Simulated assay, not measured.
Amino acid sequence: MTQHVLFFAPHWGSAHLDRDDFIRQVKDAGFDGVEMSLPMDVAERDAWVKAIADAGLQLIAQQWETVFHTDFNDHKQALAELLLNACSAQPLFVNTHTGKDFYSFAQNSELLDLADNISAETGVPIVHEIHRSRFSGHPMLLLPYLQQRPGLALNADLSHWCCACESLLEDQPLTLEKVFPHVRHIHARVGHSQGPQVNDFRAPEHAIALQQHLTWWDDIVTLRRAEGASYITITPEFGPAPYTQTLPYTNQIVSNAWDLNVAMMQLLRARYAI
């Protein structure tokens, strides 16, 4: 049985911090590692990788910047460059935002093939994030790829599907049964039927949404343990504004994303302790 559940702090929302200050914050909070998009500048990338390792932390590399590339050829070129840059750091794995929901099945499949080839060449696993507007933006968009690719590895950020399906997916248990065996990483953010992030998962009005997400994560962790995975990785990923809601006129945030991520890490660390 797997005994190691590793918790990663997202760099998203903390990019305003100096590198050393951010790493110190991660260590002080009790995370096991960092999940971040690495700079394309080689010297700056290597400085981040060294600082993370020197702090005794693990690294999950991320790429999301292909969101800015809508033309397919541009998107493909950017994906290759970003994935190669991420893999060069030799992280635990790379979490990628892949494709577009308006690309054809053949085009998105070409991008998945590209990621497979880069993973094989570099020896770094690559997982594809469930995310709105990507190839996986809705359950019915994703299922055909799973049928064709039994080895497709996913990062489960199910908050996006809550938003896309305008529900807590109560009517899609069979769909989730097909998806969960492909999950290799979890983004632990609580969504709701009208958005990808509740304002504070600890508030009583979000108890139902929290419990639904906990049930999904429990199922995934149970599957990974049954498979004998050497570790399970979870990144609490509550994000800054506009993911964090703000008050009108003042734009004052109603909750602190970092505090939510630390609280979620603590909740899940206690929940999955053996």
Rank of each mutant, 00 (worst) to 15 (best):
K50P: 00
R225M: 08
Q266D: 14
A188I: 06
A203F: 08
D20A: 13
W64R: 12
Q266K: 15
I220G: 05
P91H: 03
A51H: 03
G137A: 14
Q77G: 04
W64E: 11
W217F: 08
W258F: 04
A203T: 06
I130Q: 01
D20K: 10
V94K: 06
S109E: 09
T222P: 09
R132A: 14
S119I: 02
L143Y: 09
R184P: 01
H131I: 00
L38M: 15
R24I: 00
A53D: 06
R271K: 12
E227Y: 07
D218Q: 11
L223D: 08
Y103M: 09
P125V: 15
G33N: 07
T233M: 11
L146A: 10
F72W: 13
L59P: 04
R225W: 02
R224K: 14
R224G: 12
T222C: 12
L143V: 13
L169M: 15
G137P: 10
D28G: 01
R24Q: 05
N73E: 15
L83V: 12
W216V: 03
C87W: 07
L82N: 14
N199D: 15
G191W: 01
G239E: 07
N85W: 02
C87E: 09
H182F: 03
N251K: 07
A164R: 11
L174D: 08
V34G: 09
N199T: 12
S255D: 01
L176Q: 11
L176M: 14
A153P: 01
R202Q: 11
L112D: 00
Q266I: 08
T222R: 15
W48C: 10
I130E: 02
F68G: 06
S255T: 06
Q148K: 15
T222I: 11
R224Y: 05
V94A: 09
T250S: 15
V67R: 03
G228I: 11
Y243F: 11
G30H: 00
F201G: 01
E81K: 13
L247C: 04
W161T: 10
H138S: 07
E237L: 08
L142P: 08
H187Y: 02
K27P: 00
C163L: 15
E166Y: 05
V183L: 04
V179W: 00
A51E: 03
A153Y: 00
K27I: 01
R189M: 14
D74K: 14
